[in-house]
Amino acid sequence: MAEQRFLQLENIEKRFPIPGKEDYIAVTDVDLEIKQNEIISIIGHSGCGKSTLLNMISGLDAQTEGYIFLLGKEVKGPGPDRAVVFQNHSLLPWLSVYQNIEMAVKKVMPELSKKELKERVEKFITMVNLDHAKDKLPDEISGGMKQRVGIARALAIKPKVLLMDEPFGALDSLTRANLQEHLMRIQQNVQNTVIIITHDVDEAVLLSDRVIMMTNGPEATIGEILEVNLPRPRNRVELQHDPEYIRCREAILSFLYEKFAKEDE
C-alpha cells in the first residue's frame, strides 16, 4: 500500500497579468514533495519567487496553474493547518504577547475550556522563553522577541505545516543565531513540518533536512535539491569543520554565485 503523501506541489506556475503586455511568469514548473516532520529551506536570490511559492502553499496567494495537496486534500485558500510566521512578525500591536497567542488559539481551538486555553497559551510562551514578557505589548519588546512570539503563535494552533517567510531576515546576526537555536530546540521537542524561506546559506544548511535551490526569475523554478545529511541536534560551532557541512555550504554557494549568479540591478 502506498503511503499517503504529506505535502505535494504539482506543476505549480504563477503568472501575474501586466496590462497591455504578456503575463509575467514568476514561478513555473515546480514539482516538490515534502515529507512529514521534514524541515526544508527554499533559497534563492531576491526576485526568484520563493516568497510567492510560500504564499501559494499558505493559500494567501493562488497559483495560476498546478495543484497543492496536503494529506491528499487540495489546498484552497489560507487556513490554520498551514501556520505562517511572517517576516515582520505581524503581531497585533494592541494585544499583549499573551493575548496575541490567545486570540489565535481561541479561534482555532474553540473547544478548549478556559483553563485548557490558558495552559496551552502559557506552554507555548514558555517554549520560546518569554514568560517574563507575556503581558508586554509588542512595541515594548525587541525584534527577536517579537519573532519568537510569532513562532509561538504559529505553533500554538497545532499546524500541519509551519511556513516561515524569511523569519529572521530583519534581525541582526547574533539575534538570528539565537532564534535559530530556539527553532532547533523546539523542533527537537515538538516534531513539525517546516518550510523556511531564506537567503542565508548557513541558516539553510544548519536548519534543514533538504535545501531547495531556486533559479532566478522570471520563470524561476527548482534548480537543485540538496540533502543535508547531518545528525541532530546540530551545533553550529562544531559544524564549521564538519566535511558534510562544508560540502553542503559549498554546493549552495556554487549554485547561487556560479551557476545562477545575479548582477546587481
Binding site: 490554520p80 505581524s90 497585533l92 479561534k107
Partner: peptide, 11 residues
C-alpha cells in the same frame, strides 16, 4: 499583514 493573520486563522 494583520489581514493575512486573520485569513490564516479564518476569521
Amino acid at each position: 499583514d494583520y489581514m493575512n493573520v486573520a485569513k490564516v486563522l479564518r476569521f
